[in-house]
Structure formats: structure tokens, C-alpha cells
Design a protein around this nucleic acid. Structure first.
Length: 188
DNA sequence: AGGATGATTGCCT
DNA sequence: GGCAATCATCCTC
């Protein structure tokens, strides 16, 4: 049984990013109807040396200091897009992986022939599959093309160190649905 | 199975 | 000029 929470209050996001990241596990993210349940997220905050916001606002990270519940999209390594949801000022949750469930045909068009477990198993892959780009930077997640849907299911959640960073490596702010085959990497 | 590499943008020192 | 919240490909073991 599913209940729509398309209008998640900004108070849901205007909290510590680690709390939001944990609670977003299992919530379905759609972009123009394409997406599925979130299975992997990471938290970053203002006091965190691994965070883009650590040294204050810049043109690139300005969305991180904007309204909670809006998107922060940035280009990484000159190639890939990464999608975040803004939480407390200067903090955000990086959307790293989801279970491909809706719009598989569109995902395959964008990602090519690909086993399902690799369609959205990483932040860059997920943005390609859902067609998220800089055009989405700053947009609210409670309005089209975005949608967030909660389920009544509960999930076993595991946490551990974040991926791909060189600072703050011991902060266990990566949250995954335990045992999911759709993660960017197994939790360990 | 695991390590090295190239692609390529934008911010930093 | 260096580096980064990545990924696909091309090695080597």
C-alpha cells in the first residue's frame, strides 16, 4: 500500500542531512515518471571537510545554501551529473542509487543495453538514467518533473563510510538498504 | 578480481 | 596547475 507524499513539508528536509538520508531509504524518486525506490544516499554538511559547502558559498554550490527540499546538481570530473537534495543550510543528501522500477524503457534508451542492477547503481549513472542535468539545479523536489512517493514498507538500513572522498573518510554518513543488489558498491 | 587510465568542467591555491 | 561526492574501458594477475 502506497501513500503519496508529493508535498513533503520543507521541515522534513530542513534537518540534519544524516537524518534525512536515513529516512529517504525506500522512498521512490521519479523524474518525469522515471525512477524507483532509493537504496543509497550520503549526507554532507557545512562542518564537513568532504562537503562542497565546507568553504562557504560559490557559484557552483549556491543551491546548497538555498531552500531545503530543492535540488543541488553539480558536474563531477567534468563528465557526470550528481543529484542532491538540500537539507539544513549548507547541507545536502547525495542521491547515489535506486532500484530501477519505473520507466525502464527510458532508462535503457539513455544508458544503453544494461542489466537492471547497473542502470542506477551510482550517482552519475542515476542522473543519466533519469535525465537529471544542471537544468534541474535549484528546482523543488515537491513539484514536477520531480516526485517523491513513500511506502509503508520498512527497510533494514546499514551505514558506513562515504565513497570517493579523501577528507572526512571516517564519517559514517553513507546509508544503504541492507542487501540491496542495486548499490554502487556493497556496504562491506 | 582488481588496478590504471582517459574523458573534461569548474573551483581552488 | 591541481584536484574532484565518477564511470567505462583496457590492461595485468
Amino acid at each position: 500500500m502506497r501513500s503519496a507524499v508529493n508535498s513533503l513539508p520543507s521541515t522534513f528536509f530542513d534537518r540534519p542531512a544524516a537524518d534525512v538520508a536515513r529516512e529517504l531509504i525506500g522512498i521512490t524518486l521519479l523524474v518525469d515518471g522515471v525512477g524507483g525506490p532509493l537504496v543509497e544516499l550520503e549526507a554532507y554538511d557545512r562542518a564537513d571537510p568532504a562537503s562542497h559547502s565546507f568553504n562557504g558559498p560559490t557559484p557552483r554550490n549556491s543551491a546548497m545554501f538555498g531552500p531545503a527540499g530543492h535540488a543541488y546538481v553539480y558536474r563531477i570530473y567534468g563528465i557526470h551529473w550528481c543529484l542532491n537534495v538540500v537539507c539544513q543550510p549548507g547541507s545536502a543528501v547525495l542521491v547515489r542509487a535506486l532500484e530501477p522500477l519505473h520507466g525502464l524503457d527510458k532508462m535503457h534508451e539513455r544508458r544503453g543495453a544494461m542489466v537492471e542492477r547497473q542502470l542506477c547503481s551510482g550517482p552519475g549513472k542515476l542522473c543519466q538514467a533519469l535525465n537529471v542535468t544542471i537544468a534541474h539545479n535549484g528546482l523543488p523536489l515537491d513539484a514536477l518533473p520531480f516526485a517523491l512517493l513513500a511506502t509503508s514498507e520498512t527497510h533494514a538500513i546499514a551505514s558506513g563510510p562515504r565513497i570517493g572522498i579523501t577528507k572526512g573518510v571516517e564519517t559514517p554518513w553513507r546509508f544503504v538498504r541492507r542487501g540491496s543488489p542495486f548499490l554502487s558498491k556493497p556496504m562491506r
